[in-house]
Design a protein around this nucleic acid. Structure first.
Lengths: 231, 231
DNA sequence: ACTGCATATAACTATCTAGTTATTTATATA
DNA sequence: TATATAAATAACTAGATAGTTATATGCAGT
């Protein structure tokens, strides 16, 4: 739908432009940075909506209100653009995580805050999930050479490790909980629900995104994690 | 890689066939059922490997050692073929689930059996996960009209519901555990780990599929679920 | 004001791809 | 054995798509 109408309107602009001399569609100001940002935003949306193979470079250009040539000029090719979009998406979640100040909270509250944050981030940024899914569909080829990624995740792992240590010391957490496994599980119980919301809604015949369903889910997830970690 | 070499070999067969009279590539016996099965198998692999948009009908035909026309004859078009593959995949897991006889086991063992089964099924059938991911990338359009799906999941839900009731009655399970949420969580903690094994391996700098990593994961998952459900 | 360069645009192309058409061939049945 | 029909094949096509070429234009530094 969106794709078709976008293509149509672009074609329309072209047609009009041929007929007279630039009455329509004033050209964009010369701003390299802004153009790149428009392209990245458009690409993120298009890749998230249609996957790498399903995404169309022409659509990205149209949505970015940029010329397709600009994409190749700034980013090289479709694949490199996808890599950039992915890396930026990981960088975003990393930045958001770093604004969490778990040290100021008691261990159990901190743990709950982390679970809630993770859940809310996924809810607010479904594109992130789709991009990650896509990258895994492609066996991780685009991130293999990334230098940003291991750094990002190191942060998160450290955060959970120190939280676990603190809770254990305070006598509220069990000892011997594996930080990496916990990390994965906190992500999993939110991620799975949200990425599989479409098949999930069909299977269980209910709207996975309905407010009360979301409330039930986060409540259940908090229970899952606290029962797993707390004494 | 695989794609390219397949295409090349197919082209080679064609070229040879033109030159002389069928010395090469003995044609397949006329067996409609077998051909359909070969097409479905090939399609499953191709869709799982490359997603719906990335999958190539020509590759499916080549891998099925069938003519492309047969695909359109038996399945209509690419989309209908994908739907069929998806439905079959769900039917497969359903059949596997039905061979589980949880009633014969004490509640806790039954619960653990279910967690292990789910995990093992995902491990043995990574294609299933990829297909489901793909369908969700496409917002569930292909399964919306499916009649098989709700039936399948009803089975699983019933299984968990009666297990929970039995365990509660026996005094080993907590009361008030939501069967649907539990179902989702049991799936999630296995599914997420496996579908995200590529980015996961990069992020945590270790091989998610290494035998000892898999052992750690299933152990952790069993803990997660038993601590959640048992008193 | 001039000029070199980065930014932007439009039009083009080689290739790929889903889907078709035209034709051949095996097999079951009368 | 004759023949109707289902199964299979090869060759083709219209449209789409990633990536290019050729060209224009605004702007910063002189």
């Amino acid at each position: 739908m969106t794709k078709v109408s976008n293509v149509a309107s672009q074609a329309g602009v072209r047609a009009r432009k041929v007929s007279s001399t630039r009455v329509t569609s004033m050209p964009h100001a010369r701003d390299a940075e802004a153009t790149q940002k428009r392209i990245l935003d458009a690409a993120k949306k298009e890749f998230a909506m249609n996957g790498f193979a399903g995404a169309r470079v022409d659509i990205i250009a149209a949505r970015a209100e940029a010329n397709k040539r600009m994409i190749y000029h700034y980013f090289g090719n479709k694949e490199a653009l996808f890599e950039r979009v992915l890396e930026d998406a990981y960088a975003d979640i990393c930045m958001a995580e770093q604004s969490l100040k778990l040290d100021h909270l008691d261990p159990k509250t901190a743990l709950e805050t982390l679970v809630r944050f993770t859940w809310q981030y996924y809810l607010d940024n479904p594109d992130f999930l789709t991009l990650v899914n896509n990258e895994n569909l492609q066996r991780g080829v685009h991130l293999q050479s990334s230098e940003v990624l291991p750094v990002i995740s190191r942060n998160r792992l450290n955060m959970v490790e120190s939280l676990l240590a603190r809770g254990e010391k305070a006598g509220v957490f069990r000892s011997g909980v594996d930080a990496m496994q916990l990390n994965i599980t906190i992500a999993a119980i939110g991620y799975y629900y949200i990425t599989n919301r479409f098949t999930g809604s069909i299977i269980f015949d209910c709207d996975f995104m309905a407010p009360d369903m979301l409330k039930k889910r986060i409540k259940f997830n908090l229970q899952t994690i606290t029962r797993l970690v707390c004494k």
